[in-house]
Structure formats: C-alpha cells, structure tokens
Write a protein that binds this DNA or RNA. Structure first.
Length: 640
RNA sequence: GCCCGUGUAGCUCAGUCGGCAGAGCACUUCCUUGGUAAGGAAGAGGCCGUCGGUUCGAUUCCGACCGCGGGCUCCA
C-alpha cells in the first residue's frame, strides 16, 4: 500500500502494483509517478513507503516521458512505412527527441510529412502502451528474429536477467522507459530535422539516420517552441553578418574557417577590444604582443607537440629551422616572464594579449564564426605565489562578471572541473597542488556568491578549471569564460621566482580567457542582439537624413558636429532618395539613431530624432541628441 | 572524415518532363524635390559549382569531384 497524491491534489491509498488500474477507475490519466523527485513508470510497483505524486501529461516533470513516447510513436510509424528498417536508439533530449534508424534506402526531408502523417494515425488509434518483461533468452530470440542487430548489441551490455520492452500495437521496442499509458496522449509534436549520426557516436561504425522531433503538452508550448526556432534562425549570425556587412568567410579565395572582418565588424571589434584593454589595465594586467609562429623546440618544451599535435598545422621550414603556427599563446608569455629573475615581490604578474592562434579543425565542424581555424583569444596568464592564488581567482571572476555584464550577459552557469578521484595517476601535479588550486577556485566562487556545479573527472590533465556559461537573449547557453590552472608548463619551462628565503620556487600559473575568442564572441553577440547593437557597439551610431537636396549642407553640418563629439555619424547624402527610403535603409542597417533634417528643422537648427525602435521623438536641439547618445554610450546600455 | 540535403546574376530565389536563361533587391544612367520601413523608367550583369559520360544537342539525365547547410551518444 502506498500514499498517492493525484494531479487534482487528492490523496489516495492504493495497492503497490495496481496503480494504473486504480487510476483508470478514477478516470485519472497519469503520465508518470514522482517518487522522491524521481520519475517512475506508472506501471511499476510503488515503493512500500514514502509518498508518490502522480503527474499528468501536462506536468513539466513528465515532459521527458512524453517526448520519449513520441520517439516510440516515430519509430512505430517508421517501421510501418519502411519495412526492414533497423532501430537503434531514441531518447528524449533537451528540447525534443530523436530516433536513430538504419534505412535500406536514403531518407530525405520530403519523407518527414509522410512519417508525421503516419504518427498521427498511431496517435488517433490511441494504442495502449504495455510494459513487457522478458527473460534475457527470450529477449534475445525476439530481437534476433526481428533482425534488430543494434538492439541486440544494447541487450548484450545489460547485465540483468530480465529486461523491459514496451509494446504498442504491433510495435515492440527494447526500452527502459518510462512511457505514457497510451499513444493518444502525444498530441502536440513536430518532426523537425534529419541528420546523420554514427552508431554510438563512433566514426568507425555504421552511419545511421537520425530523425529529430519535439513534443509538448500543449499546442501553445509547441507553437512557442517553433517560434523560438524561427527567431533563432532569423538571428543566425551567418545571415546577419553578410547582410549587415560585418564579416565574410571565403573558402575559395581565403580558406575555410578564416574570417575577414569588414569595416563595420572591425568597428564593433575595436570597441570591444578598447573596452577590454582599458579594463585589463585597470585590473592590473600588462598587455603584451607576441608572434604568431615559433620554433619547433618551443612547442617541444611546452609539450604541445606531444599532446596537441593533431590540433596544430604542419611545420614550415625557415632557413632550415622548423617553425609552427601557434595554437596557443602561453609559451610566449612564459618566455617574457623568463627574461628576468623574478622576485616574490614581483608577483603576481598578469600578462594579457589579444592573441591570434591557429588550430586545425576538421572541415565538417567549421561553423560560421563559432568554430573557425584562426581566431583571437582574449588570453591572459596570471603568474603568482601560492598564497596569492585565491585572490587572483577572485579578481578574475570579478573582471569576468564586469566585462560580461557590459554585454548584457547576467545569467551565469558555473562549472568547476576537477580530477577523477579514481584516476589520480592521469593528472600531473601533486595532491597538495590540486587541493590548493581547487580550494582557491571554490572559495573564490563562494566569496563572489556564484553557485557552481562540480564536475568530477572533467578537468584537463594539467589542472582544475572554472568554466562560465552565459545565457543569451534567447536563453541559449554559451561557454565563454575559462579559468584554468596549469601545473604543466611552469614545470616544463622551469619557471621560478626567488622567495623571501632566497630560494627558487615554482610559481602557479593560471590561463584565462573571458570572452573565449573574439570571432566566436562576435558571432554570439550578433545573435544575442539580433544584429541591433547597443549604441556603444553600433558600427554606425547615427544616420543624418536630409529630406530634400536642399538640406544636404545642413545634414552634413549636423553629422560633422556629431563626429566632433566622438559619435559615429554619417550624413546620407550620396543619393537623392525619399525620406521613406532612407529610413527604411537605416532600419534595415539597424542604426540606433536617425536624425531627420527637413526644411523645418534646418530653419531653426534642430533635428527630428527617430529611434531604431520606431519611436519618433520629434524636433530636438542637436546638442540634446549628442548628450543622449553620449549618455547611452557611456552607460553601455542596451536601451537607446 | 562520414550521413542527408543543397549549388542558376553581387544577394534572395523561380525555371527548363534535353532545344537561344528568368524575377525581385542591389549596381549604372535618366526622370522625380520627396516628411518617418522601398517614387518611376531604362540599362548592364550568367561557363546554370567543376570535370567527365550519354546525346544531333546537357544548365536539365548519369558519374566523380569541389563548395555550402544540417548533424555525428543528451546513450535501452
């Protein structure tokens, strides 16, 4: 017997095994049962003690169950339409579900509506979904008879003697569950995409066809999700970038993954870099510049040729010496450090550089600005004494939040990556170093009030790290910041400082990048703002628009006045176009401020101010417009 | 790298069941002096991704290659 709370809030006591029947009697449609926050199948026996909460299909807790069942409906439809298809796996994922199949003939996007129509039939049939437990031998026989080679492989890895299947109509699938009670409960769904996927993500194994879809409890939620996808598509930086003339990537002429920053994109980058540099000087960093190539011995010493070779380009021969294009900046910063004997009084030393690096990425993974082969890291190396590391990490966090906040990123998720305690031998550095480093990261996060998730075994071999993910305006998560300890390179380069005891000591070194790379960050910013940059970043801040040819001299004077005040302004006088045309052009270019100059304004020395938002603020003295723009720029506000 | 899709003007895309290649925007010229998201007309612009095959004839059909897009464990 167990206490059960129904979706209505009513509490009932039912026998352990008969929950589904008991609910049916009461006319309750249950999607799943929550026991101690864990999602259970409604068909499972309830635990003897504790409280169970029955959730209906529209409960957020049942969303994964709904989607998992939707994936079975998909697989069911596919097996009806394509006899002989092989089933692989079909889980619920972050915002939907997928199912991997091996088809006999290629499947195209055009096939999706047909599959979706078949799904609609299966849903209309409202087939009851049963759970069937089979002894291992029988399960094997069943799967072998159906020729489900992938399922057999999965089965061989399940240790249990009894395995679970789910059956709906003529469709049966090896599955852990849980699932909805019947197919009719999947109502609001859509098939979205088709893609290739390796069986078990292994490039040496079969290529399967993955069908992506999503499902929601309500039509509104599904519609909202589809709108969100559409909005994300509309903001794609690969579309907006060329449209706003910000950048281009020209595979044929320049090379894949290599970015050309056009004047307008370069202007945005300049503003980002200027802000970044000023804040770094203010935070006690020293900026350095270092070369893009270095001798092979440098990369041998650093260890990159041992453990990072596949990410590096082939060496070039310069007067018989091998040189490599750099994949990282750190060896150069270390070389600067080593030009002097350093005292404990010199530390911390913080070298920062907007350092361009080149890394080999397979052609298939290149993606706009987000994944490229040449990029500029906003890199820095903090070299300090053991007693300074906690304050240094804290200062890094403060600088990070300050800089990210200026771009409107204020939702953070922090991951702390530490060693796999079971395999300490995979990591370099002593236990004491790891503990001290990790402790400093944790304490700095606590002092900053940043909650974090601890990820065991996620650290790289040379030290623990903090990664910060931000949520953009579409609530998508991007990893930007990384703060990582490096126990490797100080050792390899034999870095030292002289302590107050007169002895040489090994300093700690922390690598950190706040924005990640300027290319990737720019891509993210374009999507975050939908191309409408705030005033401080906008390539062109103000367009001065003459109504007729007669106002051209006046408009040019106004633009000149704005430029003298440090505002990026242009008088649009090149063509005699209607005001409507000029305004549309400025809107499309997402220029934040439009200054309309007609005869009325010119006569009294004012401008009519229109904002990118569509707001018409009417006649204003030029000085007031200048002050308004300067305020918005100074405050780095997203509002204009 | 691999799977699916895709490649026609600078951009967005029609089209040709094998027979001289089309639109809108952008560009050039002319007309228009226009008040808050496209005024009008004309012109120019193409190796229909590349190479090969079939054919009297290929942008179209077939093959290979190249580029681009989506994706390639969130594990029954």
């Amino acid at each position: 017997m167990a206490n059960v709370i129904l979706p209505s809030g009513e509490r009932v006591v039912v026998g352990g095994a008969g929950l589904l029947a008991a609910l049916r009697e009461r006319g309750v449609t249950a999607a799943a049962v929550l026991v101690d926050g864990q999602v259970h199948d409604v068909r499972d026996p309830l635990p003897a003690v504790g409280e169970a909460r029955v959730v209906s299909v529209d409960d957020p807790a049942a969303l994964d169950v709904l989607r998992h069942t939707a994936s079975h409906v998909l697989a069911h439809a596919v097996t009806r339409l394509y006899p002989g298809v092989k089933l692989a796996i079909g889980p619920a994922i972050a915002d939907g579900f997928y199912y991997d199949f091996r088809f006999r003939a290629p499947l195209g996007r055009d096939d999706l509506p047909r599959i979706q129509a078949e799904m609609a039939k299966i849903i209309a049939e409202d087939l009851p979904i049963e759970r069937v437990w089979l002894p291992r031998k029988e399960a094997e026989a069943l799967l072998a008879e159906r020729g489900e080679a992938y399922k057999l492989e999965l089965l061989s890895e399940i240790p249990d003697e009894r395995v679970s299947f789910y059956r709906q109509g003529e469709f049966i699938d090896l599955c852990r569950g849980p699932h909805l009670p019947s197919t009719g409960l999947v109502r609001h769904y859509a098939l979205l995409d088709l893609a290739g996927a390796y069986w078990r993500g292994d490039a040496s194994r079969d290529m399967l066809t993955r069908v992506y879809g999503t499902a929601f409890p309500t039509a509104e939620a599904l519609a909202e999700h589809l709108r969100w996808r559409e909005e994300a598509r509309r903001r794609d930086h690969r579309t907006l970038g060329p449209e706003l003339d910000l950048f281009s990537i020209q595979n044929e002429t320049i090379g894949a993954g290599l970015v050309l920053w056009h004047p307008k994109g370069a202007r945005v980058r300049h503003e980002i870099e200027t802000f970044w540099k000023e804040e770094h000087y203010r935070a006690g960093y020293q900026l350095v510049y270092t070369p893009h190539v270095g001798r092979a011995r440098l990369w041998e010493t650093s260890g990159h040729l041992d453990f990072y070779r596949e990410g590096m380009y082939s060496p070039m021969d310069i007067e018989g010496q091998e040189f490599y294009l750099r994949p990282m900046n750190c060896p150069f910063h270390i070389a600067i450090y080593k030009t002097h004997i350093r005292s404990y009084r010199d530390l911390p030393i913080r070298y920062a550089e907007l350092g361009t690096v080149y890394r080999f990425e397979r052609s298939g993974v290149l993606h706009g600005l987000l994944r490229v082969r040449g990029f500029t890291q906003d890199d820095a190396h903090v070299i300090c004494r053991p007693d300074q590391i906690e304050d240094e990490v804290l200062a890094c966090l403060e600088l990070t939040l300050h800089i990210l906040g200026a771009f409107g990123f204020r939702d953070y998720r922090v991951a702390l990556s530490v060693r796999d305690p079971a395999h300490k031998e995979h990591y370099i550095g002593s236990d004491a170093m790891w503990e001290q480093a990790e402790g400093s990261l944790v304490r700095a996060l606590e002092r900053k009030g940043l909650p974090h998730v601890r990820m065991g075994g996620e650290a790289v071999f040379y030290g623990p790290k903090i990664d910060i993910h931000v949520l953009d305006s579409l609530k998508r998560s991007w990893q930007l910041t990384t703060i990582q300890f490096d126990f490797n390179e100080p050792e390899r380069f034999d870095m030292a400082y002289i302590g107050d005891d007169g002895q040489a000591h090994r300093p700690y070194m922390v690598h950190r990048a706040l924005l990640g790379s300027l290319e990737r960050f720019f891509g993210i910013l374009i999507e975050h703002y939908g191309g409408a940059f705030p005033a401080w970043l906008a390539p062109l801040q103000a367009a001065v628009l003459p109504v007729t040819e007669g106002e051209i001299p006046y408009a040019e004077g106004v633009a000149e006045e704005l430029r003298r005040a440090g505002i990026r302004a242009e008088a649009w006088t090149r063509e005699r176009k209607t005001l409507r045309w000029l305004i549309r052009e400025a809107q499309v270019q997402k220029v934040p401020y439009m200054l309309v100059c007609g005869a009325r304004e010119a006569a009294v020395g004012v401008v009519a101010l229109r904002l990118r938002t569509g707001e018409d603020l009417g006649p204003q003295p030029v000085s007031a417009v200048v002050a308004r723009i300067q305020d918005a720029v100074r405050a780095r506000t997203a509002a204009i």
